[in-house]
């Protein structure tokens, strides 16, 4: 028996310290200010926040540290930072700035042992492995997904389910699973993928990629067996608040923190 709540996690893409993908809130003066947006989500009852640093150049990526520092001084829910986490020093810098977890993506593929080292040094609780997966099976075949990098353009030949299992064994405390087929489509999560990964690992799974309406969040939890659901655009554009989403999930019989 548990009352552990399913988590709703808004995700913000940050480029050179500014939130991109046009957040549209009425009660906000600067739609690009990560701190202001984080505060709105906090007030709406977001359970965690994910910041994804999409800054292209390594020099300008230092701005993310300041973003995390400012957010962490005002918003007291867990913060995860992803994008450009390649070395132990990157992790330490983000944790010292006030992040609670880091999401490791490409660096885990180029050097899986990095995940083990990071988990041993900082504890599994702050090591999230982000997996970008694409369906590679034909319609008639048993479903199969492969890991892709470079925003879904580059195949790695790695089976997504095997990979998730291996990452959990190496010490990942959580899996952030994005369907590259669904990302940006608003058609809902790849529920088969989410359920396959969730059944394969003993650590929590965050579903990501494809949310277009509240029902998709409920499906991710009830059918995809996700422990947490991540979404960007349905919250950013003011289509729904996090609070709306929680009421909807509660109405579906899902435990949420309201």
């Amino acid at each position: 028996m548990t009352h552990l709540a399913k988590r709703i996690i808004p995700c913000l893409d940050v480029d050179k310290g500014r939130v991109v993908k046009g957040v549209r809130f009425e009660n906000i003066t600067d739609a690009g200010d990560p701190v202001e947006i984080a505060r709105v989500y906090d007030e709406q009852g977001a359970d965690e926040l994910v910041f994804l640093d999409i800054t292209a150049s390594a020099e300008e990526r230092a701005t993310m540290v300041h973003v995390v520092e400012q957010v962490a001084a005002q918003v007291f829910i867990p913060l995860t930072v992803g994008g450009g986490i390649r070395e132990v020093t990157d992790i330490r810098r983000m944790l010292n700035a006030g992040a609670d977890k880091v999401a490791i993506n490409t660096a885990a593929i180029t050097n899986p042992d990095f995940v083990r080292v990071a988990a041993e040094r900082f504890g599994s609780q702050c090591i999230v492995v982000a997996i970008d997966a694409k369906r590679v099976s034909g319609l008639e075949d048993a479903p199969a997904w492969e890991i892709f990098t470079h925003g879904g353009r580059k195949a790695t030949g790695i089976d997504a389910v095997d990979w998730a299992r291996r990452m959990a064994e190496l010490g990942a405390g959580e899996i952030l699973l994005t369907s590259m087929d669904r990302d940006g489509t608003r058609d809902g999560y790849d529920l088969e993928l989410t359920a396959a990964i969730s059944a394969a690992v003993g650590v929590p799974v965050i579903a990501s990629g494809g949310v277009g309406e509240l029902r998709h969040l409920a499906d991710g939890i009830l059918k995809g067996k996700a422990d947490a659901v991540l979404a960007a655009s349905i919250f950013h554009y003011g289509q729904h608040t996090v609070r709306d989403a929680k009421r909807y999930l509660a109405g579906c019989g899902i435990p949420v923190r309201i």
């Binding site: 548990t2 009352h3 552990l4 709540a5 399913k6 988590r7 359970d47 599994s124 609780q125 405390g173 959580e174 003993g202 650590v203 929590p204 067996k225 422990d227 947490a228 923190r257």
Partner: peptide, 30 residues
């Protein structure tokens, strides 16, 4: 549906007795 480990996320906390640190915090808060 085996429980995931780590126990990660928001869960209810049931206060067993009054204490100065629970002051103003509703019973069974997350």
């Amino acid at each position: 549906a085996p429980l995931k480990i780590p126990h990660m996320g928001w869960n209810r906390v049931h206060q067993m007795h009054a204490h100065a640190l629970w002051e103003g915090i509703p019973q069974d808060s997350y």
